[in-house]
Every structure is written in structure tokens, then in C-alpha cells.
């Protein structure tokens, strides 16, 4: 059975509408007008045990809402949802012991004390025996390369060290389901890479299921064979990252080096010109006509060198996040 099973998942918020100013406030008190906001609309997907899935979408697309639905922090407005065999919003003990939520911009560690104290609190809360807790702390510390940092007050740790300690606190009870919301937010490149490496190791060692959101495409490309892309509350894509780039950009880039300069008019029949500078040309050519077009190019033009590439996924997703538009990029 799938670890996560969502069918027709919906979440609608009721938001009070208030006009600014005193008159608006008074009217608001007497007669409230409500507006509903559909944060998640009819989303269906399932995740098998042990999978690492990336969760993508522009800000406000419904990612965090979905994570909160999955972890049981909010009630769904409709649809079916089962996580680790439980209905999350009931927040039963067995369910809570089998999941964890890491939020990159929030922290659970006690600010003034060393992480070790927070870890001991969590051990007590989750009912982990003293000796077992010590063993797990040692194991996680080794994986995360944390040592004497564990006995230094949290406020004196660097952002990267703090995030690693947060991960320890979140994983001490050996959850089988990890929800990670921007776990690398604000970290420098090295720290990002280390957290990424740890998550991959952890997944391999424990077989835990991981669902993660991130603004850094490197996290997604390195960790997630499969991505879910959500936009305006709807599931737009569920599958491999490569397939996503195909959907977002159904063309390929072809870079040419010519023996002599050609005019735009001469090049136009082969594809759309993205750049033209002397003998250097970059063309965008639809995928389905790629082979035929290259054959013609090589036969009809003075080509010295030719290189075919995918448009970089970072660029596509970045553009997606910036524009908030999911129309395939115009060509």
C-alpha cells in the first residue's frame, strides 16, 4: 500500500473581506462578507514507501497548505487522504510518531541551550528510552558531522549547524515519513550540499519516504527522481523531472558555428532564432522536428560545429516561479 494516498484532496479557506478605514471596520463588524479561497483543488497522487519526491510550485501555489494537510495540521475540506495508514488530521499518537515536519524558516530548538538539551526533551516526548536516545544521537551526529556543536548554545551556532541540529531533533524518533519545507533555505552552497547528501543517505539507510519543497533546483535535481508540480492549487505534473522539462519547453536549443555569417532571413526557415552574432547562432527547434531539421541544416548550410541541448531546467522553473504562469514558454 502507498505511504501517501491523496484522492480529490481539497482545501478551501474562508477569508473575511474588509474595506479599509473606519467605515469599513464598522461595516465589517455588523455584516461580514466572506470570500473563499481555494488553496488546494482536487489534487490526487500517491507516494510509495521509500520514495523521495520533490514538491514544486510558485509561491502561493498551495505547497505549504498541502504539506500541512499531509502532516495533519489542517483539516481537508474534501477528498480522501491517508498517510502511513492514518487519517492525518486526527493526529493519533501512532501517526505523529511516524512522521516529522521540518520547516526551514521555523525552529524548534531551544535558543539559549545546546541542541543536546532539546534532543533530550524530544526523546522524553516521544518516549525513547535514555540509552536508545543516546545511541541514535551518536548515529545522527556522525552522519551530520556534528560534534562539540551539540553542547554549544543554539544561538551561537551558524545557520548550517543549526539546520543540521534541527534535522537531528526532527529525526530522533525515526519517522518513516519526512515532510521537509525548504530545508536548505538561506544556507550557503556547501551547507546545502551537505544537507542534501545527508537526506540521500538517510533515505537509503532507513528507507524513509521523503516529500520536500525547495526553491533551490539543485536540491530537487540531486534528490528527487520524481516531482509533483502544483500551480493554483492544481496538480500540473507528476513524474520525472526530465518529463517536466519536456512539457514546459517542447523544443530544444541548437547552437551552430558557421563558416560565414548568414542573414536572419536565411536562417528563419529552420527554427526560431534565439541569438545571432556573426558566425554564432542559437536556434530553438521543436522536439518532434529536431532530427529532420538537423539533417537539413547540415546539408544546406556551411556548418562548422553543431550542439544540441535542453534548455536548463533551472531557467524554466525559475521563469515559472517568477511569472507564476504555467503556459509552456512561448516560442
Amino acid at each position: 500500500m502507498a505511504t501517501v494516498m491523496a484522492r480529490g484532496l481539497r482545501k478551501t479557506f474562508r477569508v473575511a473581506d474588509k474595506q479599509p478605514g473606519l467605515a469599513g471596520t464598522l461595516r465589517h463588524l455588523v455584516h461580514r462578507r466572506w470570500r473563499s479561497v481555494q488553496a488546494v483543488r482536487e489534487v490526487s497522487f500517491s507516494i510509495e514507501a521509500g520514495e523521495v519526491v520533490g514538491f514544486l510550485g510558485p509561491n502561493g501555489a498551495g505547497k505549504t497548505t498541502t504539506l500541512k494537510l499531509l502532516s495533519g495540521l489542517i483539516h481537508p475540506s474534501g477528498g480522501e487522504l491517508a498517510v502511513a495508514g492514518h487519517r492525518p488530521f486526527r493526529r493519533e499518537r501512532a501517526f505523529l510518531e511516524s512522521i516529522t515536519l521540518v520547516m526551514g524558516q521555523k525552529q524548534q530548538l531551544i535558543w539559549d541551550l545546546p541542541p543536546l538539551d532539546s534532543l533530550r526533551v524530544n526523546a522524553a516526548v516521544y518516549g525513547i528510552p535514555e540509552r536508545e536516545a543516546r545511541r541514535r544521537i551518536a548515529e545522527l551526529a556522525e552522519m551530520l558531522e556534528l560534534g562539540e556543536e551539540l553542547t554549544r548554545p543554539v544561538r551561537k551556532l551558524s545557520l548550517g549547524q543549526r539546520m543540521k541540529a534541527e534535522l537531528m531533533a526532527a529525526l530522533l524518533h525515526r519517522p518513516q515519513m519526512l515532510f521537509l519545507d525548504e530545508p536548505t533555505l538561506g544556507l550557503d552552497i556547501n551547507a546545502q550540499a551537505r544537507v542534501r547528501q545527508f537526506l540521500a543517505d538517510y533515505n537509503r539507510r532507513t528507507g524513509a519516504t521523503v516529500l520536500l519543497t525547495s526553491h533551490y533546483m539543485a536540491d530537487i535535481t540531486a534528490l528527487c527522481p520524481r516531482v509533483l508540480l502544483i500551480h493554483e492549487g492544481r496538480l500540473f505534473h507528476d513524474g520525472a523531472l526530465a518529463e517536466l522539462s519536456e512539457r514546459l519547453a517542447p523544443w530544444r536549443q541548437v547552437r551552430l558555428e558557421l563558416a560565414r555569417p548568414l542573414s536572419a532571413a536565411q536562417l528563419a526557415p529552420y527554427g526560431e532564432i534565439e541569438a545571432l552574432e556573426g558566425c554564432e547562432v542559437r536556434l530553438a527547434i521543436p522536439r518532434e522536428r529536431l532530427t529532420a531539421t538537423i539533417t537539413r541544416l547540415l546539408a544546406q548550410l556551411p556548418v562548422l560545429d553543431l550542439e544540441v541541448s535542453d534548455p536548463p531546467i533551472e531557467e524554466l522553473i525559475g521563469r515559472l516561479f517568477r511569472q507564476g504562469s504555467l503556459e509552456p514558454a512561448p516560442r
Binding site: R91, K106, Q107, Q108, Y126
Partner: peptide
């Protein structure tokens, strides 16, 4: 305010 109530609610206690 800081949203850390989420952590409390997700503890089995």
C-alpha cells in the same frame, strides 16, 4: 505568530 505551534501540535503529547 511564529508558526512554531505547528511543532507542538505534531508532537505525540
Amino acid at each position: 505568530q511564529e508558526g512554531t505551534l505547528d511543532f507542538v501540535l505534531l508532537k505525540p503529547i
